[in-house]
Simulated scan of single mutants.
Amino acid sequence: MRILQKRTLVLMFLSVAMVFPACQSGKKKDKGGKEEPTATKPRIEKEELEKDVKEFVYPLPTSFEVTEMLNRIGAAYILTLSNSTENVDKYLTEKKQALNLGVYGADLSYASTYNQKQQTMDFMEVSKKLIDALNISGALPADIVDQIEQNEDNKDQLVRIITNTFYDTYEYLNANGRGAVSMLVLAGSWVEALYITTNISENTYQNKEMVKIVMKQKASLNKLLELMNIHKDDPNVQEVIQQLSPLAKVYNMVEENAISEDQMDIIIEETRKVRSSFVE
């Protein structure tokens, strides 16, 4: 995405949602006619804008970033953790299609990170089917499948293509007034990435690196819920917010660099429950 497009999106969302307090300052006249700061009128500084662009246009860690961490610590690829591609035809509502576009996006990133060529293509195919069902095919380059096939032996380039496609889909949804759908896609991707993370080992709590990965998702969950609250009037978004709330409650009880085994067990179970409701 071009920098100008990113800045336009940030400015648009900042003016509507005021989600970056650090960028929010303005002026109003006091009784003496002088202007004083107020929190109701946004004033965007160039430095703050540049700092926020990346995390706002795609405010959560990508599913690739999570699975790359798993790859780095030596966690094996387990195909059965991903949502079966055979399930795609049973997703008939916009909500299910959007959630599982996110789920399959995470599964696709998971497969590509581990250089699973056939699985990568399979997840790309079902993702494309959901994109068509949601009528957002304009977000994808016409030659996306050809790009993937031509680079199937180039892991770095393959991951770059897939990640850019996911970014572009998110941007397209927002640019076309379908922000609620984009929130469902993000929720599906976030839940699936955490589900993979918490189920890739039989004893997650005993793996220090895995624990670090799980704990890092606290901030991204809070950011996700913050953004979803912008679209809370949408019943589908509101339902997902409610599903994620118990998980957020546990996460927000976790102190920095400290998590109990009981808390980890609850996070694993709550993630399983939410994920199950998404893919059923």
Rank of each mutant, 00 (worst) to 15 (best):
M1C: 07
T8I: 15
L14D: 14
V16L: 13
Q24S: 14
S25E: 09
K34L: 08
E36C: 07
A39M: 09
I44S: 05
E47R: 13
E48W: 11
E55D: 14
L60C: 05
L60E: 01
P61T: 11
R72I: 03
G74R: 09
G74K: 12
A75E: 06
Y77S: 02
Y77F: 15
Y77W: 09
T80D: 15
L81S: 00
N83H: 12
T85W: 01
N87E: 07
Y91D: 01
T93S: 15
A98P: 02
G102R: 00
L108A: 00
T120W: 01
F123G: 00
M124L: 15
M124F: 12
M124Y: 08
E125A: 14
V126H: 02
K128W: 05
L130I: 09
N135I: 02
N135E: 14
G138T: 04
P141M: 03
D143M: 09
V145A: 13
D146F: 06
E149T: 07
E149A: 08
E152M: 12
E152T: 03
I161P: 00
I161D: 00
I162F: 03
N164C: 06
N164H: 13
N174G: 13
G177V: 04
R178H: 05
A180Q: 10
S182Q: 10
V185Y: 02
A187M: 07
G188L: 04
N199I: 04
N203D: 14
T204L: 10
Q206E: 15
Q217L: 05
Q217E: 10
L221S: 01
E226W: 02
M228N: 04
N229L: 08
I230Y: 11
D233C: 09
V237K: 00
V240H: 03
V240R: 01
Q242C: 05
P246E: 06
K249N: 14
K249S: 13
V250T: 12
N257E: 14
I259Y: 02
M264K: 06
D265K: 14
R275L: 04
S277W: 01
S277I: 07
V279I: 15
E280V: 10
